Amino acid sequence: MADSRYRSVVKAASYRVFATGMVFTIAFLYTGEFGSAAKIGVSAAVGKTALYYVWERLWSNIEWGRRPA
């Protein structure tokens, strides 16, 4: 059974919030500047969210490793 598009979007968004916090923290530790860290975090979040969504949709079409319900 494939995931719905809505489920993929929710999974991508929730993961991205978590991961963006980590990117922001690391960027802040490197730069010491809140603004720069925020720009890096937001840029990474937008790009990676789109990539993750595409990745999820591709994998939702692959039956390998799934067990029937």
Rank of each mutant, 00 (worst) to 15 (best):
L29V: 11
V9F: 15
A27E: 00
A45G: 03
A12Y: 02
E56G: 00
V23Y: 06
V54A: 15
Y52M: 06
L29F: 11
G41V: 00
G35Y: 13
V17D: 03
M1W: 13
E63Q: 12
A19F: 11
S60Q: 12
A44C: 06
N61Y: 11
N61A: 10
M1F: 09
L51C: 04
A2L: 07
W55C: 03
S43G: 15
T49S: 13
T49I: 00
F24K: 03
P68A: 05
R5T: 10
V10I: 07
R7E: 13
F28K: 04
G35F: 14
E63R: 07
A2P: 15
Y30N: 06
R66L: 11
T31Y: 03
A38G: 02
A13V: 15
E33K: 13
S8F: 07
A19N: 09
Y52A: 10
A13N: 03
W64L: 08
R67N: 08
V23P: 02
A45H: 01
K48C: 08
A50Y: 03
S8P: 00
W55Y: 15
G21T: 09
G47S: 03
F34V: 13
E33Q: 12
S14D: 06
W55A: 07
G32L: 04
F34K: 05
G65I: 06
L29I: 13
A69K: 14
A38Y: 12
G47M: 04
G21K: 05
M1R: 10
W64N: 04
V54P: 01
D3A: 10
V17L: 15
V23Q: 05
A45F: 01
S36M: 05
W64Q: 09
R5F: 15
S60E: 14
R57E: 15
G41S: 02
A2I: 05
A12D: 05
V42R: 03
R7H: 07
I40L: 12
E33V: 06
F18V: 08
R66F: 06
T25Y: 12
G65W: 10
A13H: 04
G47L: 06
S4D: 14
S43L: 14
S36T: 13
